[in-house]
Nucleic acid binder design. Structure first.
Lengths: 213, 213, 213, 213
DNA sequence: GATGAATGAGCATTCATTCAT
DNA sequence: GATGAATGAATGCTCATTCAT
């Protein structure tokens, strides 16, 4: 795709890829991943179907790009918010609220992400996480991205004595799925107030995790 | 399929339908709804593809049967458990735990249900809940099934003074999505301890809802 | 299907066969031969699909019965009308008018007949007439039915000097297709006045065939 | 299939479409519309089934193209022939003869057209004319094509006094169905002399329409 | 860079027919 | 007599992908 003396992707290439990814996200948010085909994406982007496969080797690569894109956009919002909080309780609060803010601000991205996450199956029936295991194992999240793991926040709080005793992985799973619930709700009811919901979650997990005196 | 003066379904018919539904559930749990085709279901059931369509007018009817079957099986476990509890706090506890018990005992059913719920899209892109709205509006859940609505439990607790003030619909959404999270976790990690997770949830929502003295 | 000491078809058998044939005719007239399936016929008759194939070895036999039935019903109307006319001109007039009367009185039968005649193709693409050739060759129309051949009428008229010189087969083809046109028209426009049309045809072919002095 | 700024169909596209249409016509003429499937058309064209659906969105679009193609080819022959005749009687003669010439010269096209016309039923059982009503209402035949309406010829002749009094619509129906009869005859007997038949029709309708002195 | 052309695999569904009861 | 059960072939159609230009 590029010459030997490689200067990285050209401007056009990046623009086209971004455009295609954007159309894919909109489409997935609108009609669901399972109904989203390459030709529909191409149609919406106003290009030939083969153009999509020129920029992305196959459907899975496009999908992967979409997921990564959204994930990084979310991280860009959440990581700073969490870093700004010194305490574990503060970090947990920031984790929930900043996630909610991203979902509110980028509703379509969140819808697309959740839909892919829950709907995607490879030809052999593997889910996205199963497929991603290899690449993740090779590139475990480092530095800032590791901050996004709720298990770490909870363990931190238990170490500092802010939080009571509980299973950090289980509590983390509860936090994550409760937050994801806001996307599901939002897809059912477009008027769903994600931030109000997340504020409620902040209270819930504050009461549920803090050490009672 | 049957004449007017109807003696109800044959023995064979009930058996075959049950078998097909079972195969469908297994398959959906295994490879996901989007990868589940009628021919794969037939293959697993060891019958010709056309047999499936002999017993179910079309894919949607089969799907509907699957969903209803699983839902009723879940309700059969949950409703008695909740009725046995007099207090709202007890009912909430029973709601979470009995749901967890059903998920543990029928892991494949729960996986299939969740996958259908999140993946299904009609030809026009509608989700299952959107499609079901009409039938639900015509036949709103009555009697025992109404017990399964978590909003009612929470409002009850607020009326009796057991629970603090909060938005019942939002809290209910949190409860539901936290419970559903156990299925997602279970699909990612087959060894996930659903009951331990639900016990943790019981604590979380007990702390989060009870009136602090 | 019947015992050795054969008393011919039982009452039930004849009744069932008649009922099925009737339903087939209605259905073909309504939705066209190509959309008419055995299961639809059975459904309309209120019996199981296999019942239809119990009385008729296969679809073609049912079809054949339908065609024969309608043809004989038409002949029953037309033959007497033609016999009543002594002259060739009178017979031609009677041929057209009585055919029109049959079409008017049994619109569905006529529609079904025409639709089968034009639409039917065997699995190998043969038309109904091609398929029927063998049976017709073995049993050429005799006696009264031979009266229905318009070629004979025209040749008779030429022998008696009533008609001018023309090619009888070609003129006969013109007469037949003009009459059939009334069915086509009637299917397009249910209000089409078949008798008025046939009266016009009578005039047309009277003017067209008579010897001018 | 093509981008917005459109240079019109490619050479390949036009060629392939023409080839597919041609194969469809041959096949319909041979085995009838009801037995003609997309895969058979593709097989005859020597391409994959999906190629047919690459050029025609669905079977109906292909069908429509076939019908339009044949109709326009017929009109191209008939319109000039009729225009060349100044009198109504001449026009009527030209209408019949030029139609016959087209049928003789393009036997397969005529057979296909008639078969589609009589056999086609939409999924809901509508005939081709019923389906075409809307498009025809929006685009009524204009200019030259209006010449092809036999009703107009007959009314013209009555206005000029060339023709006697009769119902023009009924006479037109008779003319049309008599002509169509040549196609039916030709399909039954490949050696049928269409032009001789049409010449006979010319005489028939000349005698039948002209004002007797 | 971009795209038109082509393809094969798969899917849901329809249907005539066979067979055991 | 009647029917439920089962099946294989066929149909229209979608889609991701390949390839030559």
């Amino acid at each position: 795709m590029r010459s030997k003396r490689d200067n990285g992707p050209t401007f056009t290439e990046r623009a086209r890829r971004a455009q295609i990814v954007e159309c894919a996200i909109n489409l997935i948010a609108e009609i669901g991943y399972s109904q989203t085909s390459i030709s529909k994406i191409a149609e919406r982007a106003g290009v030939a179907k083969s153009v999509v496969l020129y920029y992305f080797a196959n459907k899975d690569e496009l999908l992967n790009t979409v997921v990564t894109e959204i994930f990084l956009a979310g991280a860009a919002v959440m990581v700073p918010a969490m870093k700004a909080e010194p305490t574990a309780a503060g970090k947990l609060r920031a984790y929930i609220r900043s996630n909610g803010e991203f979902i509110s601000a980028h509703r379509e991205h969140a819808l697309a992400m959740l839909d892919i996450w829950t709907s995607y199956r490879s030809a052999s029936g593997q889910r996205l996480d199963e497929v991603m295991v290899e690449s993740t194992k090779q590139n475990p999240p480092q530095g800032d991205l590791a901050e996004l793991d709720p298990v770490r926040i909870l363990e931190l709080g238990q170490q500092t004595g802010e939080f009571r005793e509980f299973s950090a992985p289980l509590m983390a799973a509860a936090v994550r799925s409760a937050i994801d619930g806001s996307v599901t709700q939002s897809s059912v009811d477009p008027g769903f107030d994600v931030m109000a919901y997340c504020d409620e979650l902040v209270t819930v997990f504050d009461l549920a995790t803090r050490r009672n005196t």
